[in-house]
């Protein structure tokens, strides 16, 4: 740029995205491709990855990414109703212990424990959180932060559910393919399912509650009932992740209630960008492999998540996903002022 002249950035929309968010005007197959690509490509990749990575160490990383992705999606869903959770570990732990206990004490097989853990865990979490669903902002978050800790301590103090040792030698998956495709499938289902829900009339109410719950009440809608329903959905996704993981490890202990399962998903959403679900998934697929690569750091990994959280909050509050989305839909160029 020549000195003395001033330039500014100008943003232009690429042609095809119509003004209203619900109407597209497709003119050619190229336009169709333009719209489909960002959706179809990641889906195809996710379905192919288990095959590509089969037998390598990274297969496990993919599995973990999906697990944390599920937790991140569940966080993002609660957040879109205005419920900010600091306790994804509660959902995860409830599912993990529910499935683990059924398998350990009653000898139920995997194909029963996982659905039962999902539903049962979700019911428990909903029952626990419904009494505090009236709380605003910070207070609700404090409860969600406390509950997993409380249960970890209860399990230790009462020596129930295996106490500090946990429940050992649970059933394993008959094949590694089942575990990984369950995880990938659930991730895609939750991702597109949540997106769909928020576009429905039901989702309008949820988004409305987040905007201004008094308006929603004035419109004759019982916000607590809707909040309870969304907690159930989010908890089911989190509990499913827990149940899945339990049988992967063939073990469940108090570690499933630890802060890790809260902070990593949270960092993933903040990094990826809240509100779109795709951002939450993207964040997990960045953070989990990253933290695996930095395995050598050991205990410092938690600190790293913390740093990423701070950095993302301060530097890129919209998140990577929204940034990329904007880049995809818009040109940027310099124009002379």
């Amino acid at each position: 740029m020549a000195e003395g002249e001033k330039y500014r950035k100008e943003r232009l929309d690429r042609g095809i995205k119509a003004r209203s968010d619900t109407i597209y005007v497709l003119a050619s197959s190229r336009d169709l491709l333009y719209l489909l690509m960002p959706r179809a490509l990641p889906v195809a990749l996710l379905i192919l990855l288990p095959i590509l990575l089969h037998g390598t160490y990274w297969e496990k990383v993919l599995f973990y990414s999906c697990i944390f992705g599920l937790l991140a999606l569940s966080w993002d869903f609660m957040n879109s109703v205005g419920l900010v959770s600091l306790g994804q570990a509660l959902f995860f732990g409830a599912g993990a212990y529910f499935a683990g206990a059924l398998n350990h004490y009653l000898g139920w097989p995997i194909f029963l424990t996982i659905p039962a853990g999902t539903i049962g865990g979700a019911l428990i979490c909903t029952a626990l959180l419904v009494p505090v669903v009236r709380l605003r902002g910070v207070y609700f978050s404090i409860v969600t932060l406390i509950l997993p800790l409380l249960f970890a301590h209860l399990i230790e103090t009462l020596e129930i559910l295996g106490g500090t040792h946990g429940l050992l030698s649970l059933s394993a998956y008959p094949s590694g393919w089942i575990a990984i495709y369950l995880a990938v499938g659930a991730l895609l289902l939750a991702l597109f399912g949540f997106r769909k829900i928020l576009d429905e009339d039901f989702g309008m109410i949820l988004r409305g509650i987040r905007d201004d719950d008094r308006v929603v009440m004035a419109a004759g809608v019982n916000i607590y009932w809707y909040k309870a329903q969304s907690i159930f959905l989010a908890a089911a996704v989190g509990s499913f992740a827990g149940a899945l993981m339990t049988h992967y490890y063939q073990f469940v202990g108090r570690s499933v209630l630890a802060l890790d399962y809260t902070i990593l998903p949270l960092a993933a959403v903040v990094l990826g960008g809240p509100g779109s679900f795709a951002g939450a998934a993207l964040g997990s697929f960045i953070l989990v492999p990253l933290s695996e690569a930095l395995r050598a750091m050991g205990g410092l990994r938690m600190a790293l998540y913390g740093l990423i959280l701070i950095g993302a909050l301060a530097a890129l509050p919209e998140g990577i996903f929204h940034y990329l989305q904007r880049r995809y839909h818009q040109f940027e160029r310099m124009v002379k002022v």
Binding site: D21, D201, R207, G208, D211, V215, A219, V221
Partner: peptide
């Protein structure tokens, strides 16, 4: 007070979904 992040007409979906 309105639901300011929703399109205007979607604001009315909420009462239209009410039991009444």
């Amino acid at each position: 007070r309105t639901l300011h992040k929703l399109p205007a007409f979607k604001n009315l979906i909420v009462p239209l979904c009410s039991p009444r």
